[in-house]
Design a protein around this nucleic acid. Structure first.
Lengths: 117, 117
DNA sequence: TGTATATTTGGCAATATAGCCAAATATACA
DNA sequence: TGTATATTTGGCTATATTGCCAAATATACA
C-alpha cells in the first residue's frame, strides 16, 4: 500500500467499502426503516441465507449495524442512521451522469426513446 | 446477482465503491481543497503515476471528478463536493468502534497505553 | 430428548480490484 | 523535427470479494 496515505484513510475506506454493495445498500435502507431478522431480509433479497448472513457480518464488522437476539431470531438494526444521509448526493451524481450521456447522444444525433414504465 | 435488488442499488453501489478506497478518498479530499494535476497528486501519494492515473479514471467514470487539459497537464477537480459531507458520519462510526473495543478491553482487565504523539 | 427453525461458518470457484512495469500517446518548447 | 515532460493504456500477478452449497451451531418447543 502507498506509504504517504495516512492509516485514517484506510479505516474510512473500509467502512465505505462495506456500504458500497447493492445488497448491503438495500439492507441498510431497510434497517433504516425498521429492524429486521436475517430471515426477513433473505426473503426480501432472494439470495441464499448464507449470503445475506455474510453481508450482515460485513456491516456488523464495519460497525454499521447492531444485532440483538430475541427468541429464535437475531434482529439487526442500523447503528448510525447518518450513513444514508448522503444517498441524496449519490443520486445527484447519477442524475448528472445520465444528463451527460444524454448530451453526448444528442450531439451525435441519437434519439432516445423514453422507457414505457 | 440477486433478482430482487433493484438496478438502482447497483448504480449507487458503483459510485460508493469508487469512493471507498484509501487513495481515492485522499484524492477526493485534496481535490475538494483545490484542483490538482496527476503529477502533483502522484507526488503527494507516492505510488506509481500509472496507479494514480487509474484511480483518477475510476473517479472520473463514476462521475465524481472532472478533468480539464491546460498546457501540458491535466487538471482534475471535484464534481460534487457533497460526496465528502458524510466523512463526519464515517468518523463517528470509527470513533464508536474504538469505544466499543475499549469497553471490551476494560471488561477483560486490559489496560491500554495512550499513544505518545 | 427429538425435531423444526434460524443463523453462522467453512470451503470452493468465479470474478473483480489493485498496483507495478513497460509501452503508447500527447503536448510543450528548443 | 527532436527531446523532455505529462498522462494513459496494456498486460501481468497478487489479492480480495462474492455467492453458492453443505455442514455446524443455536434456539424453541412438542
Amino acid at each position: 500500500m502507498e506509504q504517504k496515505i495516512h492509516p485514517q484513510y484506510e479505516a474510512r475506506a473500509n467502512i465505505i467499502k462495506a456500504i458500497g454493495h447493492p445488497t448491503r445498500l438495500f439492507i441498510l435502507e431497510e434497517l433504516h426503516r425498521q429492524e429486521r431478522c436475517v430471515n426477513e431480509l433473505t426473503d426480501m433479497i432472494g439470495s441464499d441465507v448464507s449470503t445475506v448472513s455474510k453481508h450482515l457480518s460485513v456491516l456488523k464488522n464495519a460497525g454499521l449495524v447492531h444485532d440483538e437476539k430475541r427468541g429464535a431470531s437475531i434482529y439487526y438494526k442500523l447503528c448510525c442512521p447518518c450513513v444514508l444521509d448522503f444517498i441524496g448526493c449519490i443520486e445527484t451524481v447519477l442524475k448528472t451522469n445520465v444528463e451527460k450521456q444524454m448530451n453526448i447522444a444528442q450531439c451525435c444525433g441519437i434519439t432516445i426513446a423514453k422507457p414505457e414504465h
